[in-house]
Amino acid sequence: MNQAAVLKSEAFSEQLTRIRRHLHQHPELSNEETETTAYIASLLKSKGIRVVDYGLKTGVIAEIGGQLDGPIVALRADIDALAIQEETGLPYASVYPGKMHACGHDYHTASLIGAAYMLKQQEKQLNGTVRLIFQPAEEKASGARQVVRSGALHEVEAIFGLHNKPDLPVGTIGIAGGPLMAAADGFTVSITGAGSHAAVPESGVDPIVAASHIVTALQSIVSRNVSALQSAVISVTKIHSGTSWNIIPETALLDGTIRTFDEKVREDVLARFVQVTEGVAAALGAKAEIRWTEGPPPVVNDWSLVKLADEAAAAIGLEIVRPVPSPAGEDFAVYQKEVPGLFVFFGTSGSKEWHHPAFDVDERALPFSAAYLSQIAVGYLNSRHNAGNA
């Protein structure tokens, strides 16, 4: 089935919609995607697509092609859901309380399954191999590392992926070289002072005062340590301390996140965070201990792959836009540390942003995203074949 036929095929569109809705109804959290894994594998095997065992607990790796000599190119989709109670009111809403595909991973998975079906139909003509990566645990920023450790990226020359974008209309695609999504690191700061009666604060060390000064001081890092030509975000999202109105507690707790688009900026901001936090606490007689939750690095697209993506998008009639980078994190970045990669935003005309309990996608985008993934894989293999024969 060629690209034009795919985009006109109501049967293909309905097939992908059924797959997406089944996934949407049966969301599973990170590293718990056992039903999802079995469902994906069964769909692939039903079309004669070979599933390859890399020892992953959840997630599916499959391959198409290899009948003609050529490189391996990878396509990736994430499969996990979020711990959110769905509020869409859809007839195919989640059947599992407190679990929801609120980030569109069901859409990504259905898109890659559709691309797999298309690639299978032209398997004998593929100038190499397409490796399909249905990745677990993106929301925990650990799934890509699991895939890399499994060896599933072995001999892969390049990797491509996509993410739905609610603020882009169906029929558009956001393609850009360089930074596209942010490094997303988390922090917990434990501040220890000395408890006392609230009426005699001089007899103790107030961790709430120390925490308040730390929160204020942290805001100076971006404004005074990051160039105006760069960007960073430091957000303290939780403060917890105390048990009673008349007791100065011994400890206070801060949680939050740091977002950066450049590895050097990331390194500098994290180092400065430690200096400010520990220094302010010490100045007020308290002690601060920092525990990091290392998130994915920034998604930085390989400029050499942009032209290929533009050509693939144009081939199926998509409108190309150059998107503004998103401060959200994406562990597709882990693959880009290993091999050249390109990640794009796909227009899905949504009314709610990612992680909202009423999030949904416009399913008319499914054939476009499936066709794009198929086209970019074929385009890459053909470009490498043509370069070798030049």
Score class of each variant (00 low, 15 high):
Asn2Cys: 07
Asn2Arg: 11
Ala5Phe: 01
Ser13Leu: 13
Leu16Asp: 05
Arg18Lys: 15
Arg21His: 14
Ser30Val: 02
Ser30Phe: 02
Glu32Gln: 15
Glu33Leu: 01
Glu33Arg: 00
Tyr39Gly: 02
Val51Pro: 02
Thr58Met: 03
Gly59Tyr: 07
Ile64Asn: 11
Gly70Asn: 05
Leu75Met: 12
Asp78Lys: 01
Glu86Ile: 10
Pro91Trp: 09
His101Ala: 01
Ile113Leu: 14
Ala115Ser: 12
Leu119Tyr: 08
Leu119Gly: 10
Lys124Met: 11
Ala137Trp: 03
Glu139Thr: 02
Arg149His: 13
Glu157Val: 08
Phe160Arg: 07
Phe160Ser: 05
Leu162Ile: 07
His163Asp: 06
Asn164Ile: 08
Asn164Thr: 13
Gly171Arg: 11
Pro179Phe: 00
Met181Ser: 03
Ala183Ser: 15
Asp185Lys: 07
Val189Ile: 15
Ile191Met: 09
Gly195Gln: 05
Ala199Cys: 06
Pro201Met: 08
Glu202His: 15
Asp206Glu: 06
Ile208Asn: 01
Val209Gly: 04
Ala210Asn: 01
Ala211Gly: 04
Ser223Leu: 00
Arg224Glu: 07
Val226Trp: 03
Ser231Leu: 04
Val233Ala: 00
Val233Tyr: 04
His240Thr: 11
Trp245His: 14
Ala252Trp: 01
Asp255Leu: 11
Thr260Glu: 09
Glu267His: 11
Val269Thr: 04
Val269Tyr: 12
Arg272Trp: 06
Glu278Ala: 05
Val280Tyr: 02
Ala283His: 06
Gly285Asn: 00
Ala288Ile: 13
Trp292Ser: 03
Pro298Ala: 09
Ala313Phe: 11
Ala314Val: 09
Ala315Glu: 12
Gly317Gln: 09
Gly317Ala: 11
Gly317His: 12
Leu318Val: 03
Ile320Trp: 02
Val321Ser: 00
Val321Phe: 11
Arg322Glu: 15
Ala328Phe: 12
Ala328Met: 13
Gln336Cys: 10
Lys337Glu: 15
Pro340Asp: 09
Phe345Asp: 12
Phe346Ala: 14
Lys352Met: 11
Glu353Val: 13
Glu353Ala: 14
Phe359Asn: 01
Asp360His: 05
Val361Thr: 14
Ser369Arg: 04
Ala370Pro: 07
Ala371Asp: 05
Tyr372Lys: 10
Leu373Glu: 14
Gly388His: 06
